[in-house]
Amino acid sequence: MSRFLSVLLHGFWKDLPPFRLVLGLCPALAVTASANNGLGMGMSVTFVLIFSNLVISLLRNVIPNKVRIASYIVIIATLVVIVEMILQAYFFGLSQQLGIYIPLIVVNCIILGRAEAFASRNTPFLSAVDGLSIGLGFTMSLTVVGSIREMLGAGTWFGMSLASAEFEPFAFMIKAPGAFICLGLLLGLMNAFSHWRGENVIQK
């Protein structure tokens, strides 16, 4: 039971992507110009992550070691195409906004990383839980980064206007440089907080 809890919770702080687990930076930078896009991207990744972990864990004794990476790639790519089609059918606006970053989930290191590090050596149930945990952690991070950038850069949150008319949004935040700097400062802040709590996890 304690194992289940630790797997369920590790994605939210201990292995929080993309901050603690420095993987999947591209989508974290690219689609976080608004909170809504960040949330949509996070949910798509979560979907792929849960099912890829589940399927790979189910097949872990069937897939020969030599072709395992190739098999993982096929499984992940299939799931990504399914997500692509679902988004086009039910969330067309979002799929237009996310553009090529949806097919690029295929090469998102988080998913292949979890398949290799967790799903290939754990039971299907635990693997799915791991996918859920890491995926929700990723969603949370992306939504937070997206919210910060959207609020500062456009004065809105999920499209709702927040600021008064005097507030001059600094468009810098929703452009590329703002993405890098915002993510870098957040990472520094998290490191400082960890340090204050006495954890020793600073990224080298």
Partner: peptide
């Protein structure tokens, strides 16, 4: 065989 099966199943489901 294994790779072929995985590809086949994924193409079918897509």
């Amino acid at each position: 065989l294994v790779l072929g099966l995985i590809c086949g199943i994924s193409a079918g489901s897509l």
